[in-house]
Nucleic acid binder design. Structure first.
Length: 449
DNA sequence: AAATCGGGGCC
DNA sequence: GGCCCAGATTT
């Protein structure tokens, strides 16, 4: 048998006809050596018997091993729209986010807004409060927009992939998930788990971020999906990827489809091969380094003007971020971006200009200043940014302070600690605030430490 | 096709 | 410190 030197690709079919597309973009490929062919991803497919085996084994495994997750508890019994809403909320929360992280957020969300009609009545401030800490806040905004859209169009939930795709924030994956899980449409889904599982099943070495690769993974997932139980099958593949076929340490000995896995087979012929070689690694883009001065401005409202260490009588200045870009529309403490080498004097001068120009706070007159202290530094890591924050607490007396009413381009307000405790702050801002609270605490009662 | 958009848990 | 997670949108 000629192909026995390429066990990893025994399922692939060497295509004889030329492809009509892409050919002109490709460098002429040398004719493969006899007995060894790197298969083109377009040529990869599952055999019929393999499809049947994978469906049966995976569904059987899933029925026994599926995790008890809150969004799986809502049956489509009386109202399939309620099921669809639950799936929708869960799928949006699950984008780029682990199941364990989502569970509590999901339960709180469903308690506050049990149906799409409840959600449609919510404000963006409430939504941000419920979402705070989950990240990718655009998802929450789209969810609210989508709920309003659904209700305005009669409250009937979109049922097909094509209808679902028109809702803001619902892409190919989420449309497929809702349609298959809530409405039994026989469509596949492709997320990070599915890419990993299929890349291993078929030893796909193409760049998993490449559009052509993704397109072909969709094609292969479409071959696999079980038309009788599409929702369960899709969840089964993802469950497998999340629990057994994991990125770094797959548990192949427990895998229900190990007999169908080319990557595992390859390791038995090639001692240097690993299942974790698939999908292939992709170089990451480098992080940007940002620097900012975060100033927590506390206004003492008490008549005495003394350093009041209790919370009563204090207001804190918060500012609304622009509606586009990073952390869009979220509230934060006044912040200015810095250059890497800016020293304390420069930082404070920049802050003072900002406070004066944007909020009418003149902090140059020392008569207004009760205290001004460096609280500390904190490095907050985003996926693409490393943000170093210089945090300070600036306490000002209320008298003689001509504060602006917010009328300019910058939206701002003064709130108390009680409001700050519950409102939707991003994690980095929340961290800075907690540092300030701790600093105030230690200053007011040094003995208690 | 590449960049943007959060945060956290695990190694 | 790196990895990557039940991705979508914009440019």
């Amino acid at each position: 048998m000629k192909k026995n030197t390429t066990p990893a690709t025994t399922d692939t079919i060497t295509k004889s006809k030329k492809r009509t597309r892409n050919t002109c973009h490709m460098k002429p490929k040398p004719e493969p050596e006899a007995g060894f062919a790197i298969s083109d991803i377009e040529d990869i497919q599952f055999r019929e018997d393999s499809v049947a085996e994978i469906r049966a084994s995976l569904l059987k495994w899933y029925d026994v091993n599926k995790r008890d997750l809150p969004w799986r508890r809502i049956s489509e019994g009386e109202a399939s729209d309620r099921k669809a809403y639950a799936v929708w909320v869960s799928e949006i929360m699950l984008q780029q986010t682990r199941v364990q992280t989502v569970i509590d957020y999901f339960n709180r969300w469903m308690e506050k807004w049990p149906t799409v009609h409840h959600l449609a009545q919510a404000s963006i401030e409430e939504v941000n409060e419920m979402w705070a800490g989950l990240g990718y806040y655009r998802r929450a905004r789209f969810l609210l927009e989508g709920a309003k859209m659904v209700v305005e169009e009669g409250g009937k939930f979109p049922r097909s992939v094509s209808d679902l795709r028109r809702v803001k924030g619902i892409g190919e994956y989420t449309a497929g998930a809702i349609a298959s899980i809530a409405f039994k449409e026989a469509v596949p889904v492709v997320d990070g788990n599915v890419i990993r599982v299929i890349a291993r099943l078929k030893t796909i070495s193409a760049n998993p971020k490449d559009k052509t690769t993704i397109k072909n993974i969709w094609r292969l997932a479409g071959q696999l999906v079980d038309s009788h139980r599409p929702g369960d099958f899709n969840q089964a593949v993802m469950e497998l990827g999340a629990t057994l076929c994991t990125p770094l340490s797959p548990d192949c000995s427990s895998c229900p489809v190990s007999s169908q896995c080319s990557a595992l087979l390859k390791t038995k012929h090639d001692p240097s091969a690993l299942v974790t070689d698939y999908p292939t690694k992709v170089a990451k883009v480098k992080q940007r380094h940002d620097y900012s001065a975060v100033t927590v401005v506390e206004i003492l409202e008490s008549e005495k003007g003394t350093v009041d260490t209790s919370d009563s009588g204090s207001k804190f200045l918060i500012v609304k971020r622009p509606e586009e870009g990073l952390l869009a529309g979220l509230w934060e403490f006044p912040s200015v971006s810095l250059n890497e080498k800016d020293d304390l004097v420069t930082r404070r001068r920049t802050v003072d200009d900002f406070l004066k120009n944007s909020f009418g706070l003149n902090v140059n007159r020392s008569s207004n200043i009760v205290s001004r202290d460096e609280v500390g530094e904190y490095v907050h890591i985003f996926t693409h940014i490393r943000l170093k924050m210089y945090i300070e607490l600036l306490v000002l007396r209320s008298q003689d302070l001509h504060r602006k009413k917010d009328k300019g381009s910058m939206l701002f307000k003064y709130v108390d600690t009680k409001t700050l405790a519950t409102m939707g702050l991003s994690t980095g801002v929340r961290k800075a605030y907690n540092m300030v609270l701790k600093f105030r605490q230690s200053r007011s009662s040094p003995i208690s430490r």
